[in-house]
Design a protein around this nucleic acid. Sequence first.
DNA 1: TTTTATGCAAACAATTTGCAGGTCA
DNA 2: TGACCTGCAAATTGTTTGCATAAAA
Lengths: 127, 127
Amino acid sequence: MTKIRKAILKILSEDCCLISPAVMLQKLKSAGLNPDRSTIFRELSLLTQKTITNKIVIGDINYYELAEDHHHHLVCMGCDNIAKISLSAHLQQQEEQIKINNNFTVVNHALEFYGYCASCQDTNGDI
Amino acid sequence: MTKIRKAILKILSEDCCLISPAVMLQKLKSAGLNPDRSTIFRELSLLTQKTITNKIVIGDINYYELAEDHHHHLVCMGCDNIAKISLSAHLQQQEEQIKINNNFTVVNHALEFYGYCASCQDTNGDI
DNA sequence: TTTTATGCAAACAATTTGCAGGTCA
DNA sequence: TGACCTGCAAATTGTTTGCATAAAA
């Protein structure tokens, strides 16, 4: 448990939602650390390998989030903002069906909704 | 409507599921064309921009698929195979709820389930 | 002390861009 | 013709790797 790893885990738990390697680097710098980029890539992929974090790709950017805090995302195509929502209960049903119908054991899922948030709906007229 | 664009659309409709830029290049070569990589990137992002295709990222690989043939994916973490399934009816309900609860207008979504297919379950014991 | 993590520099791969020439309507 | 498409080469970005040093167990 090194300084950098501890700081990364702290940032992940505070920021609670998605964070990219680049932003992680910024935040570590703000916290007084100055790690190499490669260290961050190595650390985040290690954490993902250990299923402590999940990796999610949205619009060409790789994001990481704590696996324990599972949820889904509303991605605004107007302002690129990403909000959280949670539909896990419904998907759990689906996953049971998938086990039965497809003989496929689901261990994880990713669900993103793309569209327009309240303010971008206004900007673009009534979509 | 150029030769290359026509060929790309043909390949997309035949292969029906996900296709990466690299594989698209291979298939175009098999079809007797020899386009530059940049042409493929340009073409696929143009098609995506026109919402003719959707871009999906699974395991660090960018895939494209025809938007009209919408479905979801079962991604096997053992053998990396990707299968299609469809749960659209169920998600439509969710999208209406999102409109009401979050004032967010959904125009598209991506849903991938990660887990183990029938044969990989056997290989890994009873997961 | 033995393993594991880190920084640095170099290597890599996928994608993007500028530009000049070619193609399509 | 005028707009768009294409190939080529170069640039850019995000990520990975090898190796020597430093820190952790």
